[in-house]
Computed example of a mutant assay.
Amino acid sequence: MVAEPIVYVIDDDEGVRHSLEFLIDCAGLNVRSFASADGFLDASPPLGDACVVTDVRMPGMNGVELVGELKKRGASVPVIVMTGHADVPLAIQAMKAGVADFIEKPFDDTAMLSAIRAALAQQAGKQAAQAERDQIAERISQLSPREREVMDGLVAGAANKVIAYDLGISARTVEVYRANVMMKMQAKSLSELVRKATLARLS
Rank of each mutant, 00 (worst) to 15 (best):
A129K: 14
T110C: 03
P106T: 05
A119H: 04
A119V: 03
D134C: 11
P145M: 08
Q130T: 13
A115D: 06
L113V: 06
I140C: 04
A137M: 13
F102A: 07
A137W: 03
S114K: 10
E138F: 11
A100Q: 13
M112K: 00
I140P: 01
A137N: 13
Q123E: 09
Q127R: 15
Q142K: 14
D109N: 15
Q93M: 10
Q130F: 08
R146W: 01
P145I: 06
Q130P: 01
V99G: 05
D108K: 10
F107G: 00
Q122P: 01
K96R: 15
T110S: 10
R117C: 10
E138M: 13
A100L: 04
Q130C: 06
F102C: 07
P106E: 07
L113A: 07
R117W: 08
D134I: 10
G125V: 00
A128E: 15
Q123W: 07
Q127F: 07
Q130A: 14
M112I: 01
E104F: 11
F107C: 04
M95E: 05
G98E: 04
D101P: 08
L143C: 11
I140F: 05
Q93P: 02
A124G: 06
D101I: 02
A97T: 09
A118Q: 11
E104R: 12
A137S: 14
R146T: 09
A129D: 14
K126E: 12
G98I: 06
T110H: 10
I103C: 09
K105C: 04
M112W: 01
Q127V: 14
A124V: 01
I140G: 02
L113P: 02
Q122T: 13
A111M: 08
D109I: 03
A94Y: 01
A124P: 00
Q127T: 12
I103T: 02
E104W: 02
F102S: 05
K96Y: 07
I136P: 00
R146Y: 01
G125L: 06
Q135D: 12
A129H: 13
S114Q: 11
A128Y: 12
Q127D: 09
L143P: 05
R146K: 12
R117I: 07
Q142D: 14
A94K: 00
G125F: 02
A97H: 06
Q135S: 14
M95I: 15
L143F: 10
A100T: 04
K126Y: 10
T110Q: 13
Q142L: 15
P145V: 08
A131I: 06
A111R: 09
K96C: 07
L120P: 01
Q122W: 09
K126I: 09
S141R: 15
I140L: 15
D109P: 14
E104Y: 12
V99R: 03
Q135M: 14
A121W: 04
L113T: 02
R117M: 13
Q135R: 15
A118K: 14
A137Q: 14
A124Q: 12
Q93Y: 05
I140R: 10
D108Y: 06
V99A: 07
A115G: 08
R133L: 03
M112S: 00
R117H: 13
Q93D: 15
F102G: 04
I103M: 10
D134A: 12
K96W: 05
E138P: 00
S141A: 15
S144E: 11
F107M: 03
F107Y: 11
A119S: 13
D109T: 05
D109Q: 11
E104D: 10
E104L: 15
S141F: 03
R117F: 07
T110N: 10
I116A: 03
Q127H: 12
L120K: 01
P106N: 06
A131E: 12
E104V: 14
